[in-house]
């Protein structure tokens, strides 16, 4: 555990809590892609199956359980409790275009051809693209509320900090997880355009982030 990894995990947690509280307090999930949230719930589910097979640390177990609970609670708010506010017309990204290639790739490129390893690999690949329905939705509607932008900022920070974590671990331990690193770089690249918009529009602007 190093400072980059810990800050990355905390940013990830903050992002998930920001989104949950935004929906809970405003009693609305307007502007939020339910599809991205289902994909994230699927990411956590397929990645954390090792909760049942191997114990790593109390920190590891607690964080996994918290991520899972928050992910499913958020999905519950969007599709059940506040489903009237869900904008399914704008959330029109075709997730099968992500799921099929990601599933195929996880069978082809993995560390071991076992069910748990393939599901772990699937979750790593899927996480790298799971935010795309949300970014697509913002592009389609042309704007995002600033709180949604803060959510995306913390998710992006989490990714960037994990890159720093991997650089640190490579230098100090010689640790290098190729699948996680390559997917992580891809995932972080998706946030670069958003980072630019965030700093030029949300921080200087009026509260809403509109796209050109």
């Amino acid at each position: 555990m190093n400072i980059f990894r810990l800050s990355g995990d905390v940013c990830h947690l903050i992002a998930i809590i920001i989104l949950f509280l935004k929906i809970w307090r405003s009693k609305s999930c307007a502007g939020i892609s339910g599809k991205s949230q289902v994909l994230f719930a699927l990411v956590f589910t397929t990645r954390y199956l090792d909760l049942f097979t191997s114990y790593i640390s109390a920190y590891n177990t607690v964080m996994k359980v918290v991520y899972l609970l928050l992910a499913y609670s958020t999905v519950g708010l969007i599709f059940f409790r506040f489903r009237n506010s869900y904008d399914s017309e704008s959330d029109s990204f075709r997730v099968e275009f992500l799921l099929v290639p990601v599933a195929g790739l996880s069978f082809l490129e993995n560390y071991a051809f076992t069910p748990l390893e393939i599901l772990w690999t699937f979750s790593i690949y899927l996480e790298s693209v799971a935010i795309l329905p949300q970014l697509f939705m913002i592009t389609k509607t042309g704007e995002a509320e600033s709180i949604t932008a803060h959510y995306l900022l913390f998710l992006g920070l989490y990714r960037a900090l994990y890159l720093a974590n991997w650089l640190w671990r490579f230098h100090t331990e010689g640790f290098y997880d190729q699948i996680a690193v390559v997917s992580g770089v891809v995932q972080t690249i998706f946030y670069c355009d958003f980072f630019y918009l965030y700093f030029t529009r949300v921080l200087r602007g009026s509260g809403k982030m509109s796209l050109p």
């Binding site: 990645r47 090792d50 640390s57 590891n60 964080m63 560390y111 974590n165 996680a180």
Partner: peptide
């Protein structure tokens, strides 16, 4: 081996 498959990162 065990080490490769043990995932400590979230």
């Amino acid at each position: 081996d065990e080490d490769v498959l043990q995932k400590d990162e979230l």
